[in-house]
Amino acid sequence: MENSFLLEKLQENFPDKIVEIPDAHHLLTVLVDVEDVIDILRFLKGSNELQFIHLTDITAAHYPHLEKEFAIVYHIHSLVHNIRIRVKVFLDGPNPEIPTATVVWKGANWMERETYDFFGVNFLGHPDLRRILNVDDMDVFPMRKEYPLEDPNRVDKKDLYFGR
């Protein structure tokens, strides 16, 4: 199965709701809206033609400089046709919300808990949205870019000292 066929199928079923992001490594990357994401995931899994039955990963990335700060990234794999797809959803900060994918795959449970733990993304409808790797009484979301790993006063790693 080719990426173009997959994209065509998606656009056929969700007209004007799928935006392709060019990817240098031939992994079809689509940008979708938060309202449609569960429908699209359901379609990808349930469609007899596509059969994206294996949820590989859910994670997030934080772009503080963008208007929509948070990107939720789903990697899904059609084991039958041996093709992967990356679905991206951008969310508004600072309290991003997105419907849970646990209604489509049970395996999304811990992946979403991890994403919540590190980015503070609220997965609406998640059965057990608690922190998973960090301690329960932590009050920050450490993978957000505003939390520096090292002492922010350190200057020996600042780019401007290296002429860039």
């Binding site: 490594h25 990697h75 990356r86």
Partner: peptide
């Protein structure tokens, strides 16, 4: 760029995003 690469780890799909 964005890269996802997976290898068959001893316990399953080990992916790097």
């Amino acid at each position: 760029a964005e890269v996802y690469h997976a290898v068959e780890g001893a316990n399953g799909e080990l992916g790097f995003y």
